[in-house]
Design a binder for these strands. Structure first.
Lengths: 151, 151
DNA sequence: TATTGTTATACTCTATAACTATA
DNA sequence: TATAGTTATAGAGTATAACAATA
């Protein structure tokens, strides 16, 4: 998308406009920060979904991320091609692929998470730490309306 | 995008994830609210950019919105087809098209803005009025880092 | 030469439908 | 019959390149 030169007050008060451009900017910062580690924002999402959990099928991972299983195929193709995840058939149900981070995947994830944290810090620069925390909580509350008790 | 069934804590703390899904949800609510008025969210954006201003060229309107001039062509084709905007050559520079809301466009805009406000209220339901105001301010501050003095 | 609107084209992200292999 | 992974395909949404008219 083209860079906006300043939308005027009618638009900049628009919530969908603000959310769209906030997302675009955060995604841009994130991808720049992740580039040296050879992964993209969506791939980081997949790796996070796989991390620290019992091994999952592709479909379970897709549901976790809220993406289609057909989308997951291409994402895993890329990650497997980089040696960051492994796929192998589930012994108990051979229709399924068990997907896991490789050792290289865990190491890349560690570096990528650090880079992501740094990108978030850069994004939140205009806010006080208090306001930044509240922004995260407010977003969580509107995205998961049932679960606004935990932050 | 598929509806997420719950992403787990690693992902739901992710700022880019929260912003993406917040935007998707707000856009969905907005388009549902606008549908009875025959316009889409992006078209509302264009109409807002045109409203209450001196008449603009297509390129000026595109810059105002942060979209490409080629994207603006199709948006204006649709709005003109619905009789909501008019295009005519600028007498002073005949390369330009002056774009304006029609009377029907102003009326539709009025209704669409009311529907948009209602959709925003629905979106912000999980937040206190205070938290909702702070969310808007925080988004404004991160999207327009130079202008966080005005809210 | 540069700019505006336009068209043709392509790229990214995503989903739907249909295939296969298993169950 | 139903499900998991895959492939082919299509639809948004967006951008880049090239063209005609005008400056």
């Amino acid at each position: 998308m083209a860079r906006t030169d300043g939308p005027g007050p009618e638009l900049s008060g628009n919530l969908v406009y603000l959310l769209k451009h906030a997302h675009l900017r955060m995604a841009e910062l994130l991808n720049e920060a992740l580039a040296p580690h050879g992964v993209e924002g969506r791939e980081l999402g997949v790796m996070l979904a796989l991390a620290g959990r019992a091994p999952m099928s592709q479909q379970q991972a897709a549901q976790r991320l809220g993406i289609d299983r057909t989308t997951m195929v291409a994402l895993l193709d890329a990650l497997e091609g980089k040696g960051l995840v492994s796929r192998h058939p589930d012994a108990e149900d051979r229709r399924r692929n068990v997907v896991e981070l490789t050792e290289a995947g865990r190491e890349t994830l560690r570096l990528a998470v650090a880079a992501s944290d740094e990108a978030e810090r850069a994004f939140l620069t205009p806010l006080t730490p208090e306001a930044a925390r509240e922004l995260r909580e407010a977003l969580h509350a509107v995205v998961f309306p049932g679960r606004d008790e935990d932050a």
